[in-house]
Design a protein around this nucleic acid. Structure first.
Lengths: 216, 216, 216, 216
DNA sequence: CATGAATGAGTATTCATTCAT
DNA sequence: TATGAATGAATACTCATTCAT
């Protein structure tokens, strides 16, 4: 029991540090953020931070990984249970945008991960992103087979949609806009669907939307 | 005449410094790039760099502005002479992507401008970007009036397209892909047009493409 | 009985710590050796080390004292039973060299004791060394009285021999030589006892000195 | 001329820094000496020290090399002109001891060079030392050929004398004695040349050795 | 104008020591 | 007693900026 508590405490402290570090890195950028400040804000000693993360770099990278996991969970937890491909896609887009409505500052983390650790490793952002694109690609391939999506390269299409999402969040962030990102979801989905669906797909999409409305 | 030569020389040196600084900032990022190295690579003294740009920050910001001007010119110089709205749009998209095919490293500059100077000023990137979006928005409004674009919010649509472009270039960069960005133009345009055009617009687009093919 | 066992255990642990500390200090030097590592190698907690030695400095000094005691014992245990002054001396020299054949790394300890704790106290090395020199001096005085040693200052002579031994071990260590130190004993003893000159050489030396005196 | 002055100034400053660093390293030891203090004592900025010596380690090593050069010069400048082998040898011994009378603190440098940079390179001390021993060895070989030195291994003999010198200086330093080292020269030379025994002592020694051999 | 030597504020990291459990 | 998590003082090194020549 004691060791369980110990492990819990260790995990908890690790989490606290990561959370505060994320805040700081997001607010100040990698170079300007100081390990001292992470410790100071948590009212713990500098050395304690170093017990958990041996370098500033590893602290940052861990913070970036944690942030990406959060995004990943936010999306998968709502899309995984859904079977209807139209709804799955729309829900995914909304979840992506909503996540950044709640955590817009994390965009900084991703930007800095790339900016500061260019040569060092594939950004965790990309790792996760690629997973999602692959999933989306599979979905599109199935829809194409079912005649719901017109004859386009599903890999390129999946990437284009991902790029649009990524670009939308970035630009929104760059603008420092206060509006909610998720409000952009309907129009984005509208343009995307009009752009990729067959007439049959368009009908099926309307039917799907109708079913969903009924359920509520 | 002497002073004219002087002025030329000053402008030339300013340009040299900016060019080298751009290279370095793109390659190393703002924090890691050193003013010393800019000078060293140009075989001039550090103090000389400071004669032209009083701080590292201003040097960077000037480099970022210069980069954006390049992008802006690359786009406007080819789109401005075009009247046909379809062709104008397609050409703009291609020009945007082609610019980054030739200057992908500049993405780093834009990323760092945002990453390091968050609170200080509206990124020059955004300033230029907004100008283009406004132009595009006007174009869409005219097309809507002409019944070529369906009844969507042209501001949102213009932004979405800009976001897609921005996101595409970024992701391409993050991936470190060697392929040419401009090869993505046709599919992007295809999806965008299918997404925003009315049936009449689609017909007009085909006619426009045919005319262009004939000219060649 | 219990307390006796306790005391034994305490003494044992103290010894273990000292042994490991000696190894580490010898291998890394005082500044680079870490108390953490002493504990880690013994698989005990750092705090335990501090129960036995309240500071790193005291740990080091205790290690140095222990090392010197080892040298002292190694010499006295073989020389004390010997009466013949020649044999006593030769045996002592051999014992000194043999000790360092088996414990050459201890030289590091002595070096560091001096290097790091210059102002703090008379090095334990010197304390022990002086004892031996005094003994040796007494021996020489007796030999002089017996007409076995010529009319030289026995204190200086004793010191010179000690210096030679000390210097020999040090230099051997500095060289990182793998050869056995004790192999040097016979020649050292030979030179000490007889010097290096032939009778002719001795005469020539006197002549040389005379010439020089004249010149002045 | 300007560049000559420049070069002079650079060399001068390098020398100043090295001198002060030597003082500090000798007084505090490598680990305790602070680069900041070197700068502070010279009333220059820390960065300036780093312009001349890129790391503390290189500063120390340069100081050690410089110290050894000083010793080397002190010896060679007086022994090189001398032809008489006896005088050459005596003069060398005296020069060695006198050098440390004037620079006893340098012993610390040599001790620390060994203590701190054990694995990194052959101590400069040893490099120089070996040169001198080789010279001395050659001298002994010639004297042997001339019948002035008896039939002993001249390499071992040269090393023994070097060890004695080294040990003498070290021990003198360890003792913190205020007396002059060079006062020890005559007796050292006397013992080296003649040994310590009387003819009777030599006979007794042989008898002792014979007795011991018998016992075995 | 150009130079580059000098400056010194700023920071990541280490590790001896403490002390609550 | 033993533990090892937490502490925070201490320090090497960097680099933007200045300014005498």
């Amino acid at each position: 029991m004691v060791s369980a508590n110990q492990a819990d405490r260790v995990a908890l402290r690790r989490e606290e540090i990561l959370e505060e570090a994320t805040r700081l890195f997001a607010a100040e950028g990698y170079a300007r953020a100081k390990v001292d400040d992470v410790a100071a804000r948590l009212r713990i000693a500098k050395g304690t931070v170093y017990r958990y993360f041996p370098t500033k770099e590893q602290l940052f990278l861990a913070a970036a990984d944690r942030a990406m996991e959060g995004l990943q969970n936010a999306i998968l937890s709502v899309t995984d249970p859904i079977d209807d491909p139209f709804e799955k896609l729309k829900t995914g887009v909304k979840a992506y945008l909503s996540f950044f409505d709640a955590n817009l500052h994390l965009i900084e983390i991703f930007v800095h991960e790339r900016a500061e650790f260019r040569d060092r490793k594939k950004p965790s952002f990309l790792t996760y992103s690629d997973k999602n694109i692959t999933k989306f690609e599979t979905l599109l391939a199935e829809m194409k087979k079912a005649g719901l999506v017109r004859d386009i390269d599903e890999k390129l299409a999946a990437e284009t949609v991902a790029n649009t999402l990524y670009g939308t969040v970035h630009m929104h962030f760059l603008r420092g806009s206060r509006k909610r990102l998720s409000r952009l979801a309907p129009q984005m989905i509208d343009i995307i669907f009009r752009g990729i669906l067959t007439p049959a797909g368009t009908r099926a999409n309307k039917a799907s939307a109708a079913r969903k409305a009924e359920r509520k």
